[in-house]
Design a protein around this nucleic acid. Structure first.
Lengths: 197, 197
DNA sequence: TAATTTTGATTGACTCATCAATCAAGAAAA
DNA sequence: TTTTCTTGATTGATGAGTCAATCAAAATTA
């Protein structure tokens, strides 16, 4: 079996497996054996590549963040106006790739774990800062700074809230209505040049 | 030691201990021994009164829901107008008793656990339905039904979002600004007869 | 009232299962 | 043959749940 250059493939497979396992279960207490089995390898190999379980979980969370970033960068580059920038932030947050049940479940699990694990908390802080910065970039040209800050805070809370409600599946917010809801809030706040009545 | 009628006291102490432990740790994997120790009894006694660990956790979650309800009922009764009713819902959600770090941490932990445990999911559904009903009761006199539903959804998401952001402590939303933020949203949606500019 | 029985309250010690982490050894390339 | 992968088997720790035994208040009886 041992072909050369397996390392990157196995790392990737293990991270994907972790993501799926964590996302489905909605919690970080998945066993190394389960993760390894999903990736088609032994648990010993998972330890070989990642060291401790925590390291694998951390790497998985970082992967999640990286994916979000990878999707956000081009979307923001294409945005011509401040309002388009805001719409891009919202669109990415609820993109089909990001708003899937497993991904949302994984986010939630990491969110919780971050309360105890400092490294994860740091990662989450990066996400929060990026989101805030992106929102402010779109808002400050349109609103006085204090109002912009309030709207950014509310929008971020709205996004997080829709995520958590999505995690409690069973029919709750689909991507389309989630985007519509946040945009409708922005319309209202920005003087609704473009929203429905 | 065994005075008669210890049962209700012990049950209460164990539930409180569970709440504190879970809230501080922000996760349900606290040991029965730790909980029991906090309550000043042995782990065996916790099992004696509650059976399995799951049952104790479930009872604790139910307690949380009951406390929220107990606070909401009088507040809603005193509300004279629809708008006051809405304000009451918001006020209770962020009341000092509810918006404490441990309580919020516990809610988050239960939220996550509910993804796997059907009984907890059912409890959470009750909470969601109550919140929705209370919001709609305040909104339907003021808005067409479709809009009322959208505002209720957004408000609920906003509340949940502020909770989750609060859980990631470190300076995030204090009760006062959280209330202000949600009310400001409602002002805007309802035509702001009574909010600040 | 004093002795006796009953019963709720409580625990320490034990069992059993689970799981992360390690390690020595094996198989396939190079 | 050396290096890169890979695993089965093992270990050590932890934690849920059980059980037999103890303790002391309350109820009963004499």
């Amino acid at each position: 079996m041992p072909r050369l250059g397996m390392e990157p493939l196995r790392r990737r497979a293990l991270i994907d497996a972790t993501l799926n396992a964590v996302g489905e279960r909605g919690s970080l207490d998945v066993t190394m054996s389960e993760i390894a089995a999903r990736a088609g390898v032994s648990s010993a190999l998972a330890h070989h590549y990642f060291g401790a379980k925590d390291d694998l979980l951390f790497a998985t969370m970082r992967h999640l963040l990286a994916e979000l970033h990878r999707e956000a960068v081009p979307a923001l580059r294409e945005a011509a106006s401040p309002r388009e920038r805001l719409d891009a932030v919202v669109a990415v947050s609820f993109s089909p790739a990001q708003f899937r049940a497993e991904i949302v479940g994984a986010w939630l699990a990491f969110y919780v774990a971050a309360q105890q694990a400092a490294p994860m908390r740091r990662l989450l802080r990066i996400y929060a800062r990026r989101l805030h910065a992106n929102l402010m970039a779109g808002l400050t040209p349109l609103l006085p700074r204090a109002q912009a800050a309030e709207v950014a805070e509310a929008t971020a809370a709205l996004i997080d809230g829709l995520y958590i409600r999505r995690a409690l599946k069973e029919g709750e917010p689909d991507p389309v209505s989630a985007v519509a809801l946040v945009r409708s809030y922005l319309d209202l706040r920005l003087g609704s040049q473009g929203g429905q009545a």
